[in-house]
Design a protein around this nucleic acid. Structure first.
Lengths: 345, 345
DNA sequence: CAAAAAATGATTGACGTATATCATTTTTGC
DNA sequence: GCAAAAATGATATACGTCAATCATTTTTTG
């Protein structure tokens, strides 16, 4: 009925508690015969250590750090908010969480923030990679200390981290392509493609996924060259303003990057009836409003709240030396006017 | 640095540990003055009890029961599977989970299963309501024992349960309507509507949401009367076979219920080029294949795996007398051919 | 003011694990 | 077969909370 304890295991194995402990905690200096006996007993009883007791005994406040861009963007703000919302639960779970901000899109700032964590013996670190390299040295040093590394939103090379939590951006781009294809109902069209920068892995992944689908399945839809906007709203607005001239053949816009305020303003000016089908990424209040007003038709959203929850749960599990919790694949939410979250209105 | 203990609280409040304990655990027989002092100290120190220690002390294996329909449908199978996947984590968390199966869609079977739980002092019970009434008596009895009730997928009246975990089906229907609207690219069309039964709350919610959107925003798209298929594949196939005659004006199908095998077969027969735009609910292997073959265009999926995780986390939190964990609103995933989960292929 | 009732203090033993110490036994090497 | 090395046993303390007991103090009541 009740779960077996390590005492039970020791008894069944015919060894002392001390030996059983030596085996399960890999302290060494145990004869192989004893190891076998203990492991057999563990298997037979289905023993799993009681984490509550272990935590209590070690009195080990897990130390986690989240290295996030500052709140300059709505998207990052949502990350910070979710961590704040989880504060109480973290506290009761014995997790001490440090949130370190760095200036968004500043590769050096991120690198400095990460290298500043070396030697602080964190159990786990999660950070938004923004597709940057040059982090290898810091990450290697951190991992050498036993710190687990999780990348968020944008990945780094696999051998530099333990897990990646984020969406598959090629899939996201393909999905956008499919939806734009649908929206043409078989008719021909022309899509304007924008992105912050093709140097950003997530943006370029989306673009190439998008291209794949349109080229394969919607041959009578044309695609513009990618317009890089540095994720700046005003640049976005100006560029689109030009592209959406009166005689424009544009039937759809896909923005794989940020700067949606600019996009919305341009569309509002040039396409007041919302005839152009617009797909953007990430649900900000601007985008929410635009969806309701019909200027934007679809928003693909990463749901950073869920990503934060996942990252927290994962790092805690790893720190407890547990396998990661079973969690279905993350896919971006697809918002239209009708399924917007109620809390944002 | 380290979290304060109840001893710290008692010391600061100038009372004994016993009194502090009496206050925080509401054991009564405490002077109001002491209550105030202790609460002040709690607030001042930011004391929250160490759940690990509490669990250990009480050695309280949370007892949860999940009452689920048998695996007759793929959808319910996914629920069972997710619970199985969480088994290890539940065990280490000290949760004993009983899964009780009942025959799907059998109101009496569900009622019997629930009333069978009375007197077993479960901490929490989650069940798939399937929009049935008549459960009020059992639920009231269970709750009188202190058992927390969570409904899954389909709700019961609010005053009979503590939480509902599931999607907003009106929103889901509206979303389906919007996507079908998009797919017509401004052209006229005619939609065939199917559902298991309009007596099922979730189905009728979807249908009415769908109607709202089409009628308001796509006036040149016609809607058929709802065809009720009792969620039976063969009935679905036959009915659709008739509706999709050669001269048919049908441009889209929305199935708000189950029985998608029949739908796919009918479409494959009558619409081999996939010209009719099909939206269905729930991602089964059948639907997955149909998406890839182009017979189905969009699948709205509740992601029962996530719902199970939520239900487990929520019931554990409640049992620990914690506020529910912060979790963003559940919305159905929108699958097209391009964002299918990799594990299902 | 005395007796009864209420409140408080002091203390204890679980709960299961981690970790340490020290004595004792068994195995190994020569 | 003896000393050194390796393995094992026995035992203790700590972690923070829960729950209980019992003695003592304070407050209330008539």
């Amino acid at each position: 009925m009740k779960n077996p304890t390590l005492h039970d295991v020791a008894a069944l194995a015919g060894v002392s508690y001390a030996t059983a402990d030596r085996v399960v905690n890999r302290r060494g200096n145990v004869a192989e015969k004893s190891v076998r006996k203990v492991n057999d007993a563990v298997a037979q009883l289905g023993y799993v250590r009681n984490i509550a007791a272990a935590k209590l005994s070690k009195n080990r406040h897990h130390h986690l750090a989240f290295v996030l861009p500052d709140k300059s963007h709505d998207f990052f703000g949502r990350m910070h908010d979710q961590l704040a919302a989880a504060a109480l639960h973290l506290k009761t779970a014995g997790v001490v969480l440090d949130v370190i901000e760095f200036e968004a899109f500043d590769a050096r700032a991120l690198e400095e923030a990460l290298s500043g964590l070396i030697g602080k013996t964190y159990d786990g670190v999660a950070f938004v990679g923004q597709g940057l390299d040059k982090l290898s040295t810091s990450l290697t040093a951190l991992r050498a200390e036993g710190t687990k590394i999780v990348t968020l939103v944008s990945d780094v090379p696999e051998n530099n981290r333990d897990h990646y939590i984020g969406i598959d951006n090629v899939k996201a781009g393909r999905t956008a392509g499919r939806l734009i294809g649908f929206s043409h109902g078989g008719k021909a069209g022309h899509v304007v493609l924008t992105a912050g920068s093709l140097d950003l892995r997530d943006h370029s992944d989306r673009i190439s996924g998008f291209r794949e689908v349109i080229e394969a399945d919607f041959p009578n839809i044309g695609i513009s060259e990618v317009i890089e906007t540095k994720d700046q709203a005003e640049l976005m607005r100006k560029t689109l303003h030009q592209n959406l001239s009166d005689a424009s053949p544009v039937t759809a816009i896909y923005n794989a990057g940020a700067g949606n305020e600019g996009l919305v303003r341009a569309v509002r000016d040039r396409d007041p009836k919302g005839a152009v089908f617009c797909i953007v990424h990430e649900l900000s209040t601007t985008v929410c409003d635009a969806l309701q007003d019909g200027f934007v038709d679809v928003a693909l959203d990463q749901r950073p709240e869920i990503e934060m929850n996942r990252a927290l749960a994962l790092l805690q599990a790893i720190a407890d030396e547990m396998p990661p919790p079973p969690s279905p694949e993350l896919i971006p939410a697809i918002y239209v006017r009708d399924n917007l979250p109620t809390e944002m209105n």
